[in-house]
């Protein structure tokens, strides 16, 4: 399959701080590709380099067939970009914002009208053209920003934390739009720190401290990083059991989620642990196998990455 984005050993340093540390990946055309990570993990820096806003310190990247070092003007014409920071003119009307970006991208009158009509219906902005942009609710604004970013029908759409500060319903609607675009054959590159959102992506990379610490489709990632079984334990006294379990040699990893505990343990050792606990005569607990969430993967990989760094 042809790749929309190819990245090789891309690195960006700010002084001594390495924001992006030799990352490599490629994105097939038409994919919804997610970059997952905490704030400061290097997601935005990567996006900004790919869009030509920031020069890499070293490494190579090809976006839509163009080299990011020498062909940034060509790249600009075929990408759309929308950032978490709302970057339209708040003092202009919805219509005026759309018109401005259409003109900047060189759409003529006829094309502009048909495109706006099409987008307004899809995005649900019809009837709001005369409103001042700054007065729209955040969810609407984000959709308008998306509309402005895709007016010129870009091949690749970069979305840098597009749903920051948006309520869950609006987030869901926003993701419906992303799927729509994907079904039209557009490549979507989205960064997020919402783990549930990452589940919507076909392919994700988890970033931490400038490096990719996990990659694959959500299902693949879970399988790859959890070859063992993950068990869930529900109890009234999570903290006490947590402290006890932490001391047991069979437990590879354990994390606390409210009243639930997720533990990593090979299936044949489950009985052993349970019997030992029952022997204490304080009560009982049940373990049931579950499918790990991305959060489990994230935490596990983060701990491992931290450990590697420690060594």
């Amino acid at each position: 399959m042809e790749s929309a984005v190819i990245v090789e050993n891309l690195t960006r340093k700010f002084g001594h701080f390495v924001a992006v540390d030799h990352i490599s990946f490629s994105i097939p055309r038409g994919q919804v590709f997610g970059f997952l990570g905490a704030n400061g993990a290097g997601k935005s820096t990567t996006i900004r380099m790919l869009c030509g806003l920031l020069k890499p310190t070293s490494g190579q990247a090809i976006v839509a067939g163009y080299d990011i070092y020498h062909q940034s003007e060509e790249i600009k014409k075929v990408i759309g970009y929308m950032s978490q920071k709302f970057s339209l003119y708040r003092d202009l009307k919805v219509k005026e914002n759309l018109e401005f970006f259409a003109r900047v991208y060189g759409l003529d009158n006829k094309k502009f009208k048909s495109r706006v009509a099409e987008l307004e219906e899809k995005i649900g902005l019809s009837g709001k053209e005369e409103l001042i942009t700054g007065k729209l609710p955040v969810g609407w604004r984000q959709r308008l920003a998306l509309a402005c970013a895709i007016l010129h029908q870009p091949e690749i759409i970069f979305l840098d934390e597009p749903t920051g500060g948006v309520d869950p319903l609006a987030r869901r609607q926003f993701w419906d739009l992303i799927y729509d675009l994907s079904s039209e054959g557009k490549t979507i590159f989205v960064t997020t720190h919402y783990l549930d959102e990452a589940e919507y992506c076909q392919e994700i990379k988890i970033m931490h401290a400038g490096r990719i610490i996990a990659e694959g489709s959500p299902a693949q990632i879970k399988k790859r990083y959890f070859p063992e079984k993950l068990f869930e334990l529900v109890t009234a006294e999570p903290l006490r059991i947590y402290n006890w379990l932490k001391e047991q040699p069979e437990i590879e990893q354990i994390s606390l989620f409210g009243k639930k505990l997720h533990l990593l343990i090979s299936s044949d050792q489950v009985k052993q642990i349970q019997e030992r606990w029952n022997g204490l005569g304080i009560g009982r607990f049940d373990l049931r196998p579950i499918v790990p969430t991305l959060e489990d993967v994230f935490i596990r990989r983060l701990e491992e990455a931290g450990g590697e760094k420690g060594k």
Binding site: G52, L53, K76, K77, Y81, S87, R90, F101, V104
Partner: peptide, 13 residues
């Protein structure tokens, strides 16, 4: 300051 400059710089402008 408002971040609109970034959007402009990413356009063919």
């Amino acid at each position: 300051e408002k971040g609109t400059m970034e959007q402009l710089l990413l356009s063919p402008l």
